[in-house]
């Protein structure tokens, strides 16, 4: 809890870093109508892809900040030596990270979706899907963020490591959004997303802690 409170306070002292992934997502999503076609019916078909690729790219951008600052200034080292569970502390950090980057992104998604011509009825399902999906992405990403700690300029490596793990998330996520727009049954893909998130909650913090310990060597 204390770790989460500290990260929240830090984030609000430096709001520009907080806004960056969200802005990136909005820019990507609004550029599509300009480059593709202004025709609403065709935009609506492209909406799932636009939303999820935008979300994926912006979470990759945000993941770089997950552990990097703490690794540079020695805070992670002190976490590892505090006698408390590193797993829980990293889980708290990852959850805070999602609260600050993934959740705002999911909340802004209905606005973006509406701009892409998606009908109002599909918006709650899109929000739910992106909230679950971005949470899963933060968890999966925490492993790669931990693994790339030791690497200088690990940004590219971080993306490469996260992408294969994130593929199932965007496949099911985009499917859920597709079904929501078409008015189909969204529960099967949403359940899969939830399953991935639960798997992430149980395994990712353990793996991230192991990765961070290696990174500190």
């Amino acid at each position: 809890m204390l770790v989460a409170r500290r990260d929240l306070r830090l984030a609000f002292r430096k709001p520009s870093q907080l806004m960056q992934p969200l802005l990136f997502f909005m820019i990507v999503a609004t550029l599509f109508p300009l480059t593709l076609t202004p025709e609403l019916s065709r935009l609506r078909d492209a909406a799932p892809g636009v939303l999820w690729i935008g979300a994926l790219l912006s979470s990759l951008l945000a993941l770089e900040f997950l552990f990097r600052d703490d690794a540079i200034d020695g805070t992670l080292e002190q976490f590892a030596l505090s006698g408390q569970s590193l797993t829980w502390m990293l889980f708290a950090k990852t959850c805070t990270h999602w609260l600050l980057t993934g959740l705002p992104l999911a909340l802004s998604a209905p606005v973006v979706a509406a701009a892409l011509g998606v009908s109002a009825g599909a918006l709650p399902a899109i929000l739910a899907g992106l909230a679950l999906g971005s949470f899963a992405m933060s968890l999966v990403g925490s492993i790669s963020a931990g693994l790339t700690l030791g690497a200088r300029r690990g940004g590219v490596l971080l993306s490469l490591l996260t992408l294969p793990l994130a593929v199932p998330i965007i496949v099911f996520g985009a499917d859920a959004t597709q079904r929501a727009i078409a008015g189909g049954d969204i529960m099967p893909p949403l359940t899969m997303l939830a399953a991935i998130a639960v798997l992430g909650v149980t395994l990712a913090p353990l793996a991230a802690a192991a990765a961070v310990r290696i990174g500190l060597e």
Binding site: L2, V3, G74, T75, G83
Partner: peptide, 29 residues
Amino acid sequence: HAELAYLGHEPALKGDLSAQENLEFSVGI
């Protein structure tokens, strides 16, 4: 680790927090 204090090269302080806040969190964990 509960009985250990380690002072490394980096002071593990957050630039945006004051000394009191920094210690509140770092000792608080």
